[in-house]
Structure formats: C-alpha cells, structure tokens
Simulated scan of single mutants.
Amino acid sequence: MQSKGQAVLFSEMAPAAAWTDRFHNWYDTHHIPVRMACPGFVSAQRYRRQDGEGYLAVYEMDDVGVLSSDAYKVIKSNPSEDTAFMLANVSGFTRYLASETSAKPAAPGVAAALDAPILYSVCFNVPAEAAAEFDSWYETEHIPLLMECPDWLMVRRMLVTDGVPEIYTHMALHYLADAKALQSPARENARATEWRKRLAEQDWFQASYAVFDRWGQRQLGQR
C-alpha cells in the first residue's frame, strides 16, 4: 500500500514529564487514528527530536486541500477531552503544511526510504526574487552531492503554504539510514561549494535544522 502523499503536515509538540505516557497513548491510539480515517490522509509517522523533548508527527496527505475538507473540519471542531487538554498544555508546538515539489530517492521507489530511521528537516524563508536560484542550487548541485553518501536515502522538497510559529517558504526532508551521514565527506563537500558560499552571504540564508529519530510504526490511512 502506498504510504507517501503529495503533501505533508509537519507538527511537533512536547508533553510535560508528568503526563508523557498519557501523551503517547493519546497520540498513538486516538489522535493519529482519527486522522487516518479521514479521506485524503495517506499515512503518519512519529519521530523524537534528538536535541530536545519534542515529538514530531509527519502526516502524508493526497494534497494540501485535505485540511480544508468538510471531513477534516468535523474532526477539528469536535476535539475529544484528551485532545483539548493536550493541545492546550503541550509546549514547543509547530505546525507546517507543505506541498511536495520533488522527491529524489537514492534507489527506485520510495517505500523503504520513507521509513528511514533518521529524519533531518531543513527549513528556509526564501524571498521570491531568490527562489529560482535557490531551487536550482538545491536540485542540481546540493542534492546530488549529498546523495553521494550511501546513508542519504531520499530528499523531498516542499513549498510551505501555511505554518506556525515561524514563517518558512521552503522545507526539505532528508531521510537518512544513519545520523552519521550528517558528518560525512559528502555533506562537507555539499556545504563547501562556491555556489553555496555565494548564497550563504545573503541575509535570508538562515536555515532551521532539526534531526529526529523515528518513533514507533507508520500508521496507514483507509484507502
């Protein structure tokens, strides 16, 4: 069964230590399953942030319009008691809706890469006048150099259409077999090119980076 969509909802939050178990039970047995029953949701995978207490969920959807559907509006407007508690009390909340513009797996097919043990996210706020060059650099130079590392399984690029708390325009999701890929010669080479150095001189070239470990099993929507 296909588990990748053409859009993602990228949402992170952190529970208090006193109710972490309650948070995980709610997420795994209620919050995700309710969404997997909604038309347009393809799958969901949870992750844990390596440098903090946050837990991320990446929901795969047919397209960004799923969150505007009548079926999803019913879910959002009728939260359970646990859902209302969690959303009112978690910290570190993020929510980014993004539409996929490219997906480059190291090998044909995406099923195995999508379930990689490490997810590395990179977000930029790129001004409109710089977007064409930024996209060209990322697609034609940066990704090919990164994927010279055998642990770099797939790169997906996204246009962010909505999100809080930061304002981003571009998101890249890197699926890694091992976090050591981030210290690989391939990544060092990708970050040392003249093209990247030229872009890095621009004030807007300030990315937000995060590394996550896969947490639990992927849940699938009802297709």
Rank of each mutant, 00 (worst) to 15 (best):
V34F: 10
R48H: 12
D63E: 10
V42M: 08
P108E: 02
M171T: 11
A177L: 06
P117N: 01
R157E: 02
A18D: 14
S121G: 11
E60N: 03
I118D: 02
C38K: 04
A192S: 13
K73G: 11
R49S: 15
F85Q: 11
P39T: 01
V42W: 05
L145K: 10
H174R: 03
T140S: 13
W26L: 08
G5L: 04
E201N: 09
A172L: 13
F124A: 04
T83M: 14
T140W: 06
M13S: 15
Y27P: 03
A57Q: 08
K180Y: 05
Y175N: 10
A132Q: 12
M36S: 06
P127H: 08
S208Y: 07
S184I: 02
L159K: 11
S99I: 05
P150R: 05
R187I: 01
T29E: 13
E133D: 13
F10T: 02
A57R: 03
V58M: 03
E148F: 06
V90N: 00
R218V: 11
A14H: 03
A200G: 14
A7K: 01
A131P: 11
L87C: 06
W137E: 02
K4Y: 06
W19N: 12
T140P: 05
F212H: 12
R191E: 11
L97K: 01
L220F: 06
Y209F: 15
Y47K: 01
Y72F: 15
M154E: 06
G92M: 04
V155F: 05
F93L: 15
E141N: 09
A210R: 04
T29G: 09
K104P: 08
V160E: 04
L176V: 01
V126S: 00
L87R: 12
A18Y: 09
P144Q: 06
C149L: 01
M154N: 05
W152H: 10
A88W: 12
R187W: 00
A181H: 04
A103K: 07
G52K: 03
W26H: 04
A113S: 10
W195D: 10
L220Q: 09
A18C: 09
K4H: 10
A37F: 00
E12G: 06
L67V: 09
A103G: 11
G40M: 00
Q202M: 13
R198C: 09
A88F: 10
R22C: 13
M13R: 10
F85N: 06
S208K: 12
W26R: 07
G92D: 07
L119H: 03
A177I: 04
N125R: 07
F41W: 10
R49F: 13
A88E: 14
L153Q: 08
A132Y: 08
L9T: 02
F134P: 06
V160W: 07
V58R: 00
S43Q: 03
A207F: 08
Q6E: 13
T83P: 09
E194I: 05
L67K: 01
Y168S: 08
V160I: 15
M158P: 05
A111T: 13
N125P: 09
F41N: 01
I32D: 05
L159R: 12
L146H: 02
L119C: 07
K76R: 15
D21K: 09
P144A: 07
E139T: 12
S99C: 07
C149A: 11
Y96N: 05
L97A: 01
R223A: 15
A98R: 00
H31A: 07
M154L: 09
A103P: 09
D213C: 11
